[in-house]
């Protein structure tokens, strides 16, 4: 599969954005928009309407749970995947209830991360040459 969608990558740690950015580029040629906290993410979501959001949970200024809530309010169809460092069940469940699609652990080995992201994106956009949702309908 090849993923060429637009991704909003939100994490307050630049090194994480770097790493996950590289992981995303292995999936195709996505356009990556970076945000360093929830507030930036909410603003950039409105501005760019990305196909997919990767959202850290613990961030300064505005945390991921608040940002998720706001983004889902602005766009109920937003596809948001939470980035967690610990599988904290409560947070994961809370985010699922707020409409997050899934979660991804940031401390996974690279290949496992590629595998999991691929699965998630396949589920969202279909396994074929997938790009943004609207492109799926074209034969």
């Amino acid at each position: 599969m090849k993923f060429n969608g637009k991704v909003l990558l939100t994490d307050d740690e630049a090194h994480i954005r770097k790493f996950i950015g590289l992981v995303l580029k292995r999936l195709g040629s996505p356009v990556i928009i970076e945000a360093a906290n929830g507030q930036e993410a909410v603003a950039l979501y409105t501005k760019h309407s990305p196909d997919l959001v990767l959202m850290d949970v613990n961030m300064p200024v505005m945390d991921g749970v608040q940002a998720l809530t706001q983004i889902k309010k602005d766009d109920p169809d937003a596809l948001v995947i939470m980035l967690t460092s610990l599988t904290n069940r409560q947070v994961v469940e809370q985010c699922a209830n707020l409409g997050a699609l899934d979660y991804l652990r940031k401390d996974l080995p690279r290949d496992e991360m590629i595998t999991q992201l691929t699965q998630i994106i396949d589920e969202c956009f279909g396994p074929e040459d997938s790009a943004p949702a609207e492109a799926v309908t074209t034969p």
Partner: peptide
């Protein structure tokens, strides 16, 4: 320590 270490490992893999 975990996140930075995971990144170091991941970037080395790349």
């Amino acid at each position: 320590l975990r996140n930075p270490l995971a990144t170091v490992r991941g970037l080395a893999e790349f």
